[in-house]
Amino acid sequence: MSSNEPRGADVPSLFDGDLLANPHIGYARLRRTAPVHRTTTPDGEPVWLVTRYTDVRTALADPRLSLNKANARTSGAYQSSMPPELDGHLLNMDPPDHARLRRLISKAFTARRIASLHDRIEAMTEDLLDAVSGPHVDLMEALANPLPMGVICELLGIPTDTRHDFRAWTNTLLSPAAGAATESRQAMRSMYRFLVKVIADKRSRPTDDLLSAMIEARDEHDSLTESELVSMAFLILFAGYDNAVHLIGNAILGLLLHPEQMSTVRDGSTPIRAVVEETLRWNPPFPLGVRRFALQDLTLGGVGIPAGGRVWVSLISANRDEQEFDAPDDFDPVRTQAHLAFGHGIHYCLGAPLARLEAEIAISNLIDRFPNIRLALPADDLGWWPSFHKRGLQTLPVVL
């Protein structure tokens, strides 16, 4: 047993309510006392949680850590077991299958393709802000939730009248509440039936969208299997929506809590892009990287991990590592150190440019439209989603 193994009940666990409520305090303690921390799921299965920047960056690019659940020694069932029909996507694959699917999907996320969406995202943002009736408004409901859902659904070609259901399923899937494993499986089954119907409709009436292009790749070029087609549609819709929602919400909150930074954004001395990047470091919407499984016995951060052991890397902890960042708890958009919010290595997030663009446009239009915006209640009274899978606000009430 390594000397870095935790001792005593004061070391927080990934599944503690205290860590969910205030992750930054708990992770700071783990970085000091147990930077690679062996804990167990509520089902009693062992997992290793990696918290320091250097170890997280190493793990993200380590080929000895597999995303393929077939390499797990435990069941991997705790809130991560999907129906087989939704399993064939990039976050469950290693090379060469990972490279094959990534090449196919990356065509939809080129710099040119993302830039071409700018005017449409701008128009959607303006429409949402036009619909705001103040002075009191919940910005999660009015802006941060509907904008990414609208963008990703237009990109894929998902019908407008089905989008509310997918939002509800996503929230269920990411909840760690009691009974969530059963509810999550039900939500995933609903997602699967939903996507199968959408794909069937697209096959009979293709349009100029990403999902139609994926169906063509499946039917005419045999570039992916039917299971991979459904799974990738699920991943793009699921990940492309929820992460962008909370990037927007967390960035707006960061500025509202730091009026001096808001002032420099308004006068043009701090670019909106810098605010988005600092939000990704300071309060990333996705606290954990995708779970990984050791292909062999290995040592990470001085701690032994057995073959088949499940590893979670904490992006939210790595991005506030005192050994990597100066004054890491400060919201400072002018800092230059590189964060790990979108990952590192071959699994770096394909949707990162789109999420950045949505956040930049949403924040810029919001603060231009409402120069006197402020929080409607103390920051300590804001409600965060009780989930270690996402770091985001349930509501963001403001006065315009």
Rank of each mutant, 00 (worst) to 15 (best):
A177G: 15
E360P: 04
T207A: 15
E45G: 07
S204V: 13
E216C: 09
P23G: 05
L20I: 02
I363R: 03
F331A: 07
P95L: 01
A178S: 12
R266D: 02
T54H: 10
R120P: 01
E322V: 07
A9P: 02
T264N: 00
I272E: 06
G249W: 05
P146M: 04
L300N: 07
W282L: 08
L128D: 09
D208L: 00
E358C: 12
D321G: 05
S175A: 08
L67V: 10
K107A: 14
P353A: 12
F388G: 05
A233Y: 07
L382T: 08
Y78L: 05
V132D: 11
A213M: 08
L393P: 04
T58Q: 13
S106V: 03
G304A: 13
L195G: 14
L67N: 15
G343T: 14
H389R: 13
G304T: 14
A239T: 11
L288P: 07
L155N: 03
T162F: 01
T39R: 00
L280N: 02
L65C: 05
S223E: 15
T40N: 13
L67F: 08
R205H: 14
L91T: 14
T225L: 00
D87A: 10
D297V: 05
G240C: 03
P206V: 05
P23C: 03
G289C: 01
W282K: 02
D16F: 00
G345N: 11
I373Q: 00
V275K: 03
V275I: 14
A9R: 10
T110W: 03
A274P: 03
A233N: 04
L253A: 08
P285F: 03
S190F: 03
Q323C: 06
R391K: 05
L129H: 10
H136A: 15
L90C: 06
L65A: 04
I248E: 08
P135G: 11
R7W: 00
A376T: 01
H246V: 02
L354K: 06
A318N: 09
T39K: 02
I248S: 09
G26S: 12
V47H: 01
G44M: 09
P63M: 06
V230L: 11
M93A: 10
E322S: 09
N22S: 14
A307P: 09
A379C: 09
A144Q: 08
S66Q: 00
L280Y: 01
R310S: 15
A123H: 07
E216W: 04
H98L: 10
D267N: 11
D138P: 08
E183Y: 09
P46H: 04
Y192K: 09
R356C: 02
F234M: 14
V56E: 07
L91N: 12
T33K: 04
D267F: 06
L255R: 00
N243S: 15
K390C: 12
E277D: 13
D208R: 08
L396A: 06
L224V: 12
E126T: 13
D219V: 06
P96R: 02
P206L: 01
S269K: 02
A28F: 07
P284R: 01
S223K: 14
N4C: 07
P148S: 12
L280E: 03
P386Y: 06
M149V: 15
L350S: 11
D127Y: 01
L400E: 09
I105T: 13
N250L: 11
L235R: 07
P42I: 01
D368S: 12
T336P: 00
